[in-house]
Design a protein around this nucleic acid. Sequence first.
DNA 1: CTCAGTGCAAACCGTTTGCAGAACG
DNA 2: CGTTCTGCAAACGGTTTGCACTGAG
Lengths: 166, 166
Amino acid sequence: MTDATPIRPFIRLFSRYLRDRGLPVTHQRESIAEVVFSSDAHLSVEDIERDLRGRNARIGKATIYRTLELLVQSRLVEEHDFGEGFKRYEHRLSQDPEHEHLICVECGKVLEFHSAELRHIEERMQEEHGFVPTRHRLEIYGLCRSCHEAGVVLPDRGLTCPIDTL
Amino acid sequence: MTDATPIRPFIRLFSRYLRDRGLPVTHQRESIAEVVFSSDAHLSVEDIERDLRGRNARIGKATIYRTLELLVQSRLVEEHDFGEGFKRYEHRLSQDPEHEHLICVECGKVLEFHSAELRHIEERMQEEHGFVPTRHRLEIYGLCRSCHEAGVVLPDRGLTCPIDTL
DNA sequence: CTCAGTGCAAACCGTTTGCAGAACG
DNA sequence: CGTTCTGCAAACGGTTTGCACTGAG
């Protein structure tokens, strides 16, 4: 998100979500929403915690988790698990609400892309398997341009040729 | 895998992988491989542990984890994380080695499907972003036919209309 | 004033690790 | 026989929970 993008309206959106459900709008919740909406990155809870400390907001980790749960429920924020052993959070405002991820296994950088093909795949699943899709996750792991150009090569530790020994 | 499929060759394949690296081929490793290759399901460590007990093999959980690591390294077995808080394991023999997953969020059933489109998407990423793909993960979550026909509906707890209040 | 939220610390739970004793090669 | 493995139990680390206190409505 650029600095020009005002995040205040997004926080108000979250406040509305809370009020609609009769939940208190606390300073902590607003601060956490502010941090999440201020970044276009895929934030870990640790990232959020650090950012809050930088803003002189002393908020317990438990509150961060509890507030993220609310943000995810409100659909304003999406939860990701890139297999790092912890979750990451990304807001869904002012960007393509449906996008997929390219994840560099070397440097951890995350790029986003859009895929029209997925809609067709989902339709096919409904036709062929009677499966009603509600959400999906497409992640492509590999080397980003800079890591690849830096000559990084990934080790292959698998069997040389599985088939010919059956 | 049908009962007709002999799993012995698969276990031998794993033994070869171990021998090639100078690693001991122990009874425990063979038993664990036997369990994993005997099932076409997506097994949790708990599933494997239970199955081993059923075969009167008393094997510690740590050994199961350590052996699964070897099986994954050998590329004979694939590790999955469907966001349940634990991992699942699936062997890659006698089936489409590259396939994606349909996961029913109601009953947990997992269906597999193949998508030719993914190759094209990966090629596009290389052309457009210079990203070199090594592996991917495509999971579609939703309701399987039987759950959908049973009338299961998923709750929508998000904001009614995010945009119009900005 | 009342009910939910917050902070802290302890609990959780799948997974990993350290170490003494057992097994493979 | 030396090296690696196994089993047990303790450690780990991200996340969740219980509870006394604080604060929003």
